[in-house]
Simulated assay, not measured.
Amino acid sequence: MLIGIMLIDQLEFLTNCFSGRPLDCAIRQLWDFAFVGADIDGNLLPLHHPFTVPLVDQVNQWARFASGILPRPQAQTITAWWIGINDTGDTVNNASISDFHSFFEEEMDSFFSAVETAYSTGLRGMHLFLTVPPGERSPGYLGSPSAATLQAHVDEFNKILLQHARIFAQNHAATPVLVFDAHAWFNYALDNAPALGFTNTSGFCECTNEKGFFWYNSGHPTELVHQQMAGALEEFLLSVSI
């Protein structure tokens, strides 16, 4: 089964658990505690949307309402974490932050405090972290003077994420800890778009027939991108489990 603590459409394709009760999913269960537009901590950044539930609060919901109820057999459970896309974007024009390295370190401390909460309340199987993709290559940032700033924020966030993931792994030697490089995969997919079936990587199509489009809107990829990344993620998980 998969516990998703961050919105990750790829997990739906990875599990074939798209709707209904997770307990009724035939192949793998997917329990998703994510909320749209989440940053890591509402005490560190303003809410991305007025109704957003930040990641630390998502984890508290798991700990309070679900940890004593949901099944999570250690050898059969992956806890997946994909966070930072909104954090790196929401800091681009944030004039209140003068030292972004220190800020992302503070965010990561809050993030991994939440990871420790998840671990201490029963999620002791594999923990899977995903890096932040290159948002500067999305239609919303192509040609924008803010693109270089976003790229720098993403690179810094990912570097600090890897450091904290290594520390978490060292402190929990019995727990498998993996990092999937979504940043590298997005760059690969965009660089090889025609071979993957994409004919448009600079525009977007908010439509039901997204054929050929990499981007659904100015910052979110299409369903086919999610599906293909799920395939790459599954190959990655199988390769490290052999």
Rank of each mutant, 00 (worst) to 15 (best):
S241R: 12
P145T: 13
L23C: 08
H226L: 13
L14H: 15
V154E: 15
E107V: 11
T222W: 09
A118V: 11
T201E: 15
K159V: 02
T88S: 14
H220I: 09
C17G: 00
V56I: 06
V240C: 09
A169P: 09
V59W: 08
L11R: 02
V240R: 06
G4M: 03
E235S: 07
E136W: 04
R72H: 11
M6A: 15
N43M: 07
F112E: 14
A165R: 00
L70N: 10
V225T: 05
F129P: 09
I83V: 15
E156N: 14
M6I: 12
I69F: 05
I78Q: 14
A182S: 10
L11W: 08
D9E: 08
T79Q: 12
L128D: 09
N93K: 13
P194N: 06
L224K: 01
I97L: 09
L161C: 11
L150A: 08
N192H: 08
I3M: 11
L70D: 07
H127K: 04
Y119M: 00
H153G: 11
R166W: 06
L190F: 07
V240L: 09
G84T: 03
G42S: 14
F214T: 01
S138G: 01
P134M: 02
S98P: 15
T79D: 04
V53N: 06
C25Q: 00
S144C: 08
D191P: 09
G143P: 10
W62C: 13
I78C: 11
F18D: 12
P22Q: 06
C207N: 02
G140D: 13
S120A: 04
F13E: 01
M108H: 14
L11F: 11
I160C: 02
E156C: 15
A26W: 05
L44V: 04
Q170R: 00
E116M: 02
Y141H: 11
L44N: 02
T199R: 11
T91C: 15
P145R: 09
I8K: 07
